[in-house]
Design a protein around this nucleic acid. Structure first.
Ligand SMILES: [Zn+2]
Ligand SMILES: [Zn+2]
Ligand SMILES: [Zn+2]
Ligand SMILES: [Zn+2]
Lengths: 131, 131
DNA sequence: TCTGTTATTGTTATATTATAACAATGTAAT
DNA sequence: ATTACATTGTTATAATATAACAATAACAGA
């Protein structure tokens, strides 16, 4: 099983730190604005950190929102099986950790019997607060 | 059940036509380049058509690729339950139409019992050709 | 320690994707 | 003809992401 990297570089720590402090997904340029006081001045510094953090599964990209959220799913050791619930009203995003769901999707075969080593699922609805 | 719109505007037809002729997802600016001979000269003309075509379910956006593909799934009457298989080697994309899968996901409830009216699922792997 | 190798960083510029804003025209019901 | 609404054309700009290259740091083996 792939492990999450223990030691992060300076910039990776800075970027991860700000994402972990946010309850909600953060956009790259919002992250950039927030880390400028820490010395990260240009987009590539942020995007490189983001790329690495996604790669090692510390954060995930919410593709439909072009935003990044910290992984808080202990069962999600690497970024190959992700599922999220997204409120279309308040944009609240939560990572879904359902072993039933992940088993179902990891074992899914298409008509030609092809299996997949990776998936990303985004559910949309209206959350309790917004109802 | 929501119906697919029958009559499209001129620009919507032009954009849909080029997407339907492509076996693969097309990017917005590639579409723009291809429809310039038809008189669509600026991004908003393409993006407006794309927005409408997505809304009525004639095409879908592949979020992880920022690209658009024609819907060829007759069971997919509207853009609220989509699943795709994506080859990470050749970027081949196919819409998955599995009633089992769509039933499973449409009925999925999270830990708080919340159900969702919409989902988008992207599977990644290596297709037969690329193996 | 020295040295080669790789990861990381800093920096500038640019590419790619998408929308705002507003005037003009077309379409269809009353 | 008048109204309402959708669509179009157009210019400019916002938002997201990467290329390219020089400099520095981290680290393992000789
Ligand atoms: Zn996770
Ligand atoms: Zn909400
Ligand atoms: Zn479809
Ligand atoms: Zn392939």
């Amino acid at each position: 099983m792939a492990q999450k990297k223990e030691y992060l570089s300076k910039n990776q720590k800075i970027v991860l730190d700000i994402i972990e402090k946010s309850a909600q997904p953060m956009k790259a340029y919002s992250i950039l604005f927030n880390v400028q006081k820490k010395g990260l001045k240009a987009p590539p510094q942020v995007y490189r950190a983001l790329d690495k953090l996604v790669e090692i599964g510390k954060i995930h990209k919410i593709e439909s929102r072009n935003a990044f959220i910290a992984c808080r799913n202990s069962a999600c050791t690497i970024t190959n099986a992700t599922a999220f619930s997204i409120c279309e009203s308040c944009e609240d995003v939560k990572e879904i950790s359902s072993s039933k769901l992940s088993k179902y999707l990891s074992n899914f075969q298409d008509k030609e019997g092809m299996k997949y080593n990776k998936y990303n699922l985004e559910f949309f609805g209206i959350c309790k607060k917004c109802k």
